[in-house]
């Protein structure tokens, strides 16, 4: 076999190829994260979708995790255990959210008239005051009031409203009943 010696240019070309390979791995490795895709360089450079937080989207997550088991994913309620509907419900679509916030904070039990039909059960709905933050409660209530899936459309509930109601009812431990709630004005002062 021949004893040909390759010129320097050949080795420079090899070096360039090797450099390209290493540079590719060095500069475009996305920090080896499973969440970084082309064209982004790292996790921080990926824009958040939609920019700011959308309360309906945030609330949808809370609803799916905590509420949908009884109220159903489509908000229809469950006649089998007396759980009333939230989609199109007159309680939910009330202009002021004061009663709604109280129900989520402390829960509710006993008979309740929703859209002219009696619902409710002796066990009732659980309290979420310890499980959820003001913000999360505001999100989930806003979601059920504005859900595009259910065509609900009522004003947004803010974390400040929830905070004010929470402070007012902080001494209360028991679930609400329909009669008690009916005495409270709907607007949050």
């Amino acid at each position: 076999m021949g004893s040909y010696t390759a010129p320097v240019g050949f080795f420079i070309a090899l070096a360039i190829l090797a450099y390209l390979g290493h540079a590719e791995l060095g500069y475009h490795n996305g920090q080896f994260s499973p969440g970084v895709y082309e064209p982004y360089a790292d996790l921080r450079s990926i824009p958040k979708s939609g920019g700011e937080v959308n309360p309906v989207d945030e609330g949808r997550v809370v609803y799916a995790q905590l509420c949908s088991a009884c109220h159903q994913p489509n908000g229809s309620g469950n006649p089998a255990n007396g759980c009333p509907p939230v989609a199109g419900s007159d309680w939910v679509l009330e202009e002021g959210p004061a009663r709604l916030i109280r129900i989520v904070l402390n829960g509710a039990k006993g008979p309740i008239m929703v859209n002219g039909k009696e619902w409710g059960s002796p066990v009732g709905m659980l309290a979420f005051k310890d499980a959820l933050s003001d913000e999360q409660i505001a999100h989930v209530i806003t979601y059920i009031r504005q859900s595009p899936e259910w065509k609900n459309n009522a004003p947004t509930v803010t974390a400040e409203m929830v905070k004010s109601v929470r402070e007012k009812t902080s001494s209360r431990g028991a679930q609400w009943t329909s009669d008690e709630l009916m005495k409270i004005p709907t607007a949050v002062e």
Binding site: G21, E24, H28, N29, G30, S33, P34, V36, Y37, E38
Partner: peptide, 11 residues
């Protein structure tokens, strides 16, 4: 694929 897998292939 995540970027690093592409990068490994290209390298």
């Amino acid at each position: 694929f995540p970027r690093w897998i592409i990068s490994v292939g290209i390298a």
